[in-house]
Design a binder for these strands. Structure first.
Length: 218
DNA sequence: GACCAGATTGTCT
DNA sequence: GACAATCTGGTCA
């Protein structure tokens, strides 16, 4: 079941104390799979008009630009994917299926067009804001899946291109959870090509992860 | 829990 | 005009 009011308030206060600072651009200027794995366990933070929301990243996928048939950048630069071809450390937000937004963080050298799709997070701060946005109360379901994560964090096309090395949208340089030995890899979810590449990284057995969780669960 | 169909619209060919 | 880096609710087991 969900946490009681007291427990969640205490957890939020603890999370606020351990937030740290935004990751520098150097962090993103590396091969996409390395960045993807290093993002697991860090806090994603978004300061919005309704307040601050933040959560621990527990599931991501790497998309390797023009060499990756599953990437939006595979067929070259278009108006939609232009941000992916730019400087690392920016947000690439796209709209899909007529109703969902998804958040990526641009990695690698400028011109390489690789990015990490953030697929799931464990809510830590602003939980009531997320519940309101999602219309769902179960903690585990607030940011499970890329579309849900974007909705819970209040992300839409107005955030496309934002620099994530500074507020309002950023990732913390601290790792409140290291998940040592619990990071699993698998093929990516929801794609029809290049399905053999193991570029999805997630916390094994976490109830906050979408799709196959790679381990016992119940 | 697993499987399936329907929703809904921006983007590209 | 076709499709999409998805989600939800329904049905069946």
């Amino acid at each position: 079941m969900s946490l009681g009011a007291d427990a969640s308030t205490t957890a939020e206060e603890e999370a606020r104390r351990t937030l740290g600072n935004p990751l520098p651009r150097d962090f993103y200027d590396r091969p996409v799979t390395r960045v993807a794995r290093d993002l697991i366990g860090r806090m994603l933070v978004h300061d919005t008009r309704e307040g601050r929301v933040a959560g621990v990243i527990v599931e991501v996928e790497g998309y390797r630009g023009e060499a990756d048939p599953a990437s939006h950048a595979f067929r070259g630069r278009t108006r939609r994917n232009a941000v992916m071809f730019g400087e690392p450390g920016h947000a690439y937000v796209y709209f899909t299926y007529g109703m969902h937004h998804c958040l990526n963080l641009v990695t690698g050298r400028e011109g390489v067009a690789s990015a990490v799709l953030l697929r799931a997070a464990e809510p830590r701060i602003g939980i009531e804001i997320m519940r309101r946005r999602r219309g769902v109360s179960v903690l585990e379901r607030l940011a499970r899946g890329p579309g849900c994560l974007a909705q819970a964090f209040g992300l839409d096309l107005t955030r496309n291109g934002l620099d994530v090395t500074e507020p309002p949208l950023w990732v913390s340089d601290r790792r409140p959870e290291r998940f040592a030995g619990r990071i699993g890899t698998s093929s990516r979810v929801g794609i029809r090509v290049a399905t053999e590449r193991p570029w999805r990284f997630f916390v094994r057995e976490s109830p906050f992860v979408s799709g196959p969780r790679g381990g016992l669960r119940r």
